[in-house]
Computed example of a mutant assay.
Amino acid sequence: MPRSEGQKGKLIWLLRILARHTDEEHLINVPRILELLAAEGVAAERKSVYDDIATLRALGYDIVQHRGRGGGYYLASRPFQLPELKLLADSVQASRFITRKKSDQLIRALSQFASQWEANELQRQVFASSRVKSMNESIYYNVDALHRAIASDRQVRFVYQEWNLDKKKVARRGGGAYQVSPWALLWEEENYYLVAFEEGKGMRHYRVDKMTSIALLDQPRLGREEFDPQKMRDYAKPMFGMFGGPVSRVELRCENSVIGPMLDRFGTGVTILPQPDGWFTLYADVVVSPPFFGWLCGFGGRVELVSPAAAREQLRQTLETISKAYQPKENV
């Protein structure tokens, strides 16, 4: 029989058919395989299909055959199992960092690792309260550009933006560019951050979705002596709301009922001293900031900031200011 145009790719087409049209619940027989190959312009005979399946098995593909009535073949092992794909799809859909458009594209890409029936299960609505999906489509290119700058040991220049009351992004510094030496990308609190050295200011971090007009420069990076890759894992650990600043050792007096949230926030390596009165003392390194005070207040008196004294006084003044703002208004 003369070889058709599709013969050279027949093994690939057969593998695609097995990947897309079979799973443990859906088997395919040889006549159906021949139909699907013919639909792709690939002529084949029954014996050649058996031989090709044997070749794919020899190459390491886990193709299982069930004999008898209703029997057939299916591809048993894949790069991702269905529960793994569901987890990835849910994470993509729930992430506020990934735009809705990109979420759909990524989930469609993930579905290529599943059969057509399993792929339908990936199109699920995941509800993530209080999450607003990003509207910045260029963020993916920003991340790629920053990775290239880090890999090639180059500084970058960019414009940094923020929202105004007209719901528009405007450039900080009056449109003036930032020039920094990028050292790492950090995923924290559902956002990408660039950790970089800015001359005269030291190590700083910047939200990647607020960066625009990123340009790679020819100057080599600065700040190598201030960057410790071993500490990057814990870079954001003492911060609340990614507020930077000096780190202070704080002493917290906590009701026993809040041990879970404390360990969730600070980890199991934190120092805890149980007390006989149903409370415990906790010592942790944090950046004292308004978000930290807000986090403390969220426990409604079940957590007390004991020291340092300056931070305790700062919290007291903050609460006093808030209290004044909520004093009863006199009738006019």
Rank of each mutant, 00 (worst) to 15 (best):
T99L: 07
P83N: 09
T321H: 15
R32V: 13
R172W: 08
A284E: 02
V30I: 14
Q230A: 14
T271E: 10
R100M: 01
W163V: 04
E188Q: 15
S323N: 11
C254R: 09
Q7T: 03
M203Q: 02
L88C: 08
G176N: 10
Q161I: 04
Q314S: 15
A119E: 05
F127M: 10
P290K: 15
R224G: 15
I150Y: 06
K167W: 03
L75Q: 07
A54M: 02
S248F: 02
E5F: 08
A236M: 15
R316K: 12
G200Y: 04
E251M: 11
R207M: 08
S115Q: 09
V286N: 06
G9R: 13
L75S: 07
D144P: 02
L263Y: 03
N136D: 13
P246A: 07
S248D: 13
L315N: 13
P308N: 09
F266E: 04
V286S: 07
Y50M: 03
D62Y: 01
A145C: 08
L217A: 06
E5T: 08
M203C: 00
Q105P: 02
A43D: 13
E255L: 11
Y73G: 13
R312C: 13
G60A: 09
D277F: 04
A44G: 01
P220D: 06
S248T: 00
A325G: 12
F97D: 07
P31S: 12
Q112P: 00
L273Y: 03
E188P: 04
S181G: 06
E137V: 01
L296K: 08
K210D: 15
R173H: 10
P31A: 10
A109W: 02
G175H: 09
L18V: 02
D234Y: 10
K8R: 15
V64M: 15
N191V: 05
V159T: 15
K8E: 14
E45V: 07
T22K: 10
F299T: 13
R3W: 04
R207K: 11
E330F: 05
S111F: 07
W279F: 14
R3E: 11
A284K: 01
S248M: 11
G278K: 14
D144H: 07
I12K: 07
M232T: 11
R124H: 09
V287C: 10
K324V: 14
V42R: 05
A58N: 08
D285G: 05
L185E: 13
K324L: 14
G202H: 05
H205Y: 04
L296Y: 00
P246V: 00
I98Q: 01
A54K: 06
S77K: 14
A311L: 03
Y50P: 07
S95L: 01
L185D: 12
V303M: 12
Y61K: 02
L216T: 15
A149L: 04
D104M: 04
C297L: 15
E40D: 11
A310F: 10
V258M: 11
R96G: 15
E35P: 01
